[in-house]
Amino acid sequence: MQAVFKRTAGLLNIPTHYCPGCTHGILHRLIAEAMCELDILHRTIGVSSVGCTYNNYEYFACDMVQAAHGRAPAVATGIKRVHPSKSVFTYQGDGDLAAIGTAEIIHAAARGEKISVFFANNAIYGMTSGQMAPTTLIGQVTTTSPFGRDPDAQGHPINVSEMMATLPGAVYVERVSLHDYRHIIQAKKAVRKAFRVQEAGLGFSLVEVLSTCPTNWGMDPPKSMDWVAEVMIQQYPLGLFRDPKLEESK
């Protein structure tokens, strides 16, 4: 008998503190599996950000550093420049990356830092209990947009991948989703590719991953997945925004 699916060595054997059905757990697993499959776990350094995943340094089996809110790309820049032989990634939410950390992410990409950014976009501030994020959809109800986000008062959502793709230093930019089996398999490929682009020394890579926050969206987990598929994807279409054309070796 062969294992079709077994626990990856890229995650430590510790239960996560995430809410039931939160897709952060799925993205952690994809990153962990990719590190193992590419055999880079022993020389990868991850940077945790601020948000519900602030302490994912407890979960990943690679070395980890925790950065102040929004500053993960700056911390990753320092690590990568001092240790160019390591693989360096950041794990950031949309509150972290697209609000307080907007300057850091744009300039890291503009400089073409050879790091990989995994950007979990759940269109809300999860950890602080559901305030509006820059990525919140028009009309979406949050604790700070109780009547739905109104562009007149609260502005428009930021499409991070499209924006990043205007920067020549960002050589690989793709938006994926975790809302069903097929898309999770697709997302895994993107995560692997981000690491491979970095390993090949090509430049900055960013994978935006449409994620859920069932707790603060006020939906059960399967309904949250449907909401991503039916509503969120319309604002954030999936696709490859910058493609460095790696030769298909691994």
């Binding site: 008998m1 062969q2 294992a3 079709v4 699916f5 077994k6 626990r7 990856t8 995650l11 239960p15 996560t16 995430y18 059905g21 939160c22 897709t23 952060h24 757990g25 799925i26 697993r29």
Partner: peptide
């Protein structure tokens, strides 16, 4: 999301 399932075939 919680690696609670293992599958063999």
């Amino acid at each position: 999301p919680d690696l609670a399932i293992e599958v063999w075939r």
